[in-house]
């Protein structure tokens, strides 16, 4: 590929036009409120479980969206920070008897801290080799989860019964906590990417050298993005541990890193809402198409290839360009009638 490859993404990722920005803001507010109310509305425990699945995947995907979508850096090791969150929280609560909220804060802080420390070597790696570096990192963590049996419980993992560690009252209301975290994560990513700093992020992705020349503190921003991404992934891990009441290496391995990547591609690489939509697709499609069973990965692999070929902005990008062309035909129609 020539380095001058046209970046079709830029167009998709460009902040929404001024007139519709307010509409988007209110849509986001209403969406958040609806999301927070969903656990009260949803009747069945099964659907409630799916909702939490979607929310946790969404948070994890938002962490990758932040890194990939807004800086063009592919991370194949997002599951490593997810693992830091999930295992830290589980170990603190089971082995050390730390109360849940404190364990959560420590786990998320550790996720951010480890991302901060690792960003120093990682950010020395440029371009697509960074994906290789994060891949190695994820695999190191996965191997350690399996092998450090005294700490992690090996393949059996660590049980984290909710009734004991959260108490029955909190346990019953845990879905609210999960969607609450998602709303927080969404608005965090939204605010990070929408102000002047958001523009800096785009610049980092599209033209890092140019951004540096314009005085954008490139390394500091990248480090920050990594750190926040690590914190979000850790938070998702914390929630996952309580949601499934067990942490095992399989849930935090390479497969998970890849699945998050698929979510981000399906939803739309540089889109906050794309992360949520992609997560919903990944959770619901296998539920609807139960007969697929083992064919699931094949379907998702082909789906992603199809999206990369025909819909490079993901589902959200597709909808956006559809709206844009609708609007264009409408205005041109008006011109004709006028």
């Amino acid at each position: 590929m020539s380095t001058t490859a046209i970046r079709t993404q830029t167009e998709i990722a460009r902040p929404v036009r001024h007139g519709s920005r307010r509409a988007v803001f209110w849509a986001e507010v209403i969406g958040s409120v609806v999301l927070l109310a969903l656990p009260a509305i949803i009747p069945s425990a099964y659907q409630l479980r799916l909702l939490q699945d979607v929310a946790i995947w969404s948070i994890l995907a938002l962490s990758l969206t932040l890194i990939f979508g807004y800086t063009g850096q592919i991370s194949l090791g997002q599951a490593a920070f997810y693992a830091v969150g999930g295992y830290t929280s589980a170990i603190l609560q089971t082995a050390l008897g730390v109360p849940a909220p404190i364990a959560w804060v420590v786990a998320i802080a550790l996720g951010m801290g480890s991302a901060l420390i690792l960003s120093f070597p990682l950010l020395r790696i440029h371009g697509h080799f960074l994906a290789l570096g994060t891949l190695a990192l994820g695999l190191i963590v996965e191997t350690l989860l399996v092998q450090l049996v005294p700490v992690t419980g090996g393949h059996d993992g660590i049980l984290l019964p909710g009734a004991i560690h959260l108490g029955p009252w909190v346990q019953a209301r845990f879905p609210y906590i999960v969607v609450g975290f998602l709303v927080l994560a969404y608005w965090l990513v939204r605010n990070l990417t929408q102000r002047g700093m958001g523009r800096a992020f785009f610049a980092l992705r599209d033209d890092p050298d140019g951004a540096a020349a314009l005085g954008v503190p490139v390394t500091r921003y990248k480090t920050l993005v990594f750190m926040i991404g690590g914190g979000l992934a850790a938070a998702a891990g914390v929630l996952y541990a309580h949601h499934t009441q067990v942490v095992t290496p399989e849930a935090f391995g390479f497969g998970t890193s890849i699945e998050v990547l698929l979510i981000v591609i399906i939803g739309g690489m540089s889109s906050r809402i794309g992360a949520v939509i992609g997560a919903a697709v990944i959770v619901f499609v296998p539920e609807w198409l139960q007969f697929l069973q083992e064919g699931e990965n094949l379907v998702f692999g082909l789906l992603v290839l199809g999206i990369l070929l025909f819909l490079p902005g993901g589902l959200v990008g597709g909808v956006r360009s559809a709206i844009r062309s609708l609007r264009r035909t409408r205005t041109s129609g008006e011109e004709v009638s006028a």
Binding site: T8, I74, I258, L262, G301, V304
Partner: peptide, 17 residues
């Protein structure tokens, strides 16, 4: 004119398939 990062992801998806 797909960006390189999309092509890298495509290789991952191809492997998955």
């Amino acid at each position: 004119g797909a960006p390189t990062e999309n092509m890298v992801v495509a290789t991952i998806a191809f492997g998955l398939v």
